[in-house]
């Protein structure tokens, strides 16, 4: 990834899209400090992330794969993350929302994929942080949980949070995102609103526009 210059203002939902290997994950991991950049600079809420770990208090992260220590119980895992962050939380409210009450005493290895994803969402949304990074948030969710997730994301947006989402479900992106950031080969290939994307690619449908954007043509 090089020459990527991205400035995300406070508030709003940003969808990071791009084909496999375009650098979506690298971008997210760089922001989270998991990938250490050779060069360049990232700031989160005005703090440089280099040699810093406290800035991650500002970020709620939802990883793509929900895989937790199998012999811990759900409530122990929630307690562990609460212990690590030491911050006000709304775990109980989210447990109600996603109907996780009956799973609290179950071991994580016995949960289904969808339930694990609900736990994953709970861990990401239980703290009040200004930045959210959601990697494929819809994986394995049933329709009711998906609606709950969308409501949660919308509420956070209204509260002025900045939300970065990657997703392969274009319908979800179309419904949620304020801005599209399209990455190709580690560079920002397009950035703008849905309307400007449709206009730029001369398409009327979002999925066609996404398919068309990566194909260079003289019109573009």
């Amino acid at each position: 990834m090089n020459n990527l210059d991205l400035d995300v203002e406070n508030g709003g939902i940003y969808a990071v899209l791009g084909p496999n290997g375009s650098g979506k994950t690298t971008l997210i991991k760089s922001i989270l400090g998991m990938v250490i950049m050779d060069d360049g600079q990232i700031e989160v809420s005005g703090q440089s992330i280099k040699n810093n770990w406290l800035y991650r208090k500002e970020i709620n992260y939802l990883p793509q794969i929900a895989n937790f220590p199998g012999n811990l119980r759900v409530n122990e895992l929630i307690k562990m993350i609460k212990d690590l962050r030491n911050k006000n939380n709304r775990a109980d409210e989210l447990i109600q929302l996603f109907n996780l009450n009956s799973f609290l005493d179950k071991k994580l290895s016995t949960l289904s994929g969808g339930t694990k994803q609900k736990v994953n969402i709970l861990l990401a949304f239980m703290f009040d942080s200004p930045v959210y990074i959601l990697d494929e948030p819809t994986t394995g969710l049933d329709p009711a949980a998906l609606l709950n997730l969308k409501d949660l994301i919308r509420k956070e947006k209204q509260a002025g949070k900045t939300i970065l989402i990657t997703s392969h479900i274009l319908q979800f992106v179309e419904e949620m995102a304020d801005q599209i950031i399209y990455l190709l080969e580690g560079k920002i290939y397009f950035r703008g609103t849905m309307q400007s994307l449709l206009k730029k690619t001369h398409q009327t449908k979002f999925d066609h526009a996404i398919a068309a954007i990566a194909i260079p043509s003289e019109h573009v």
Binding site: Y55, R56, K57, F68, L84, R85, I133
Partner: peptide, 16 residues
């Protein structure tokens, strides 16, 4: 086995 969970921990405000 705990690779994914480690990534979740790496995203928390905790030193590596």
């Amino acid at each position: 086995n705990s690779k994914e969970f480690t990534e979740l921990l790496l995203a928390q405000p905790v030193k590596r």
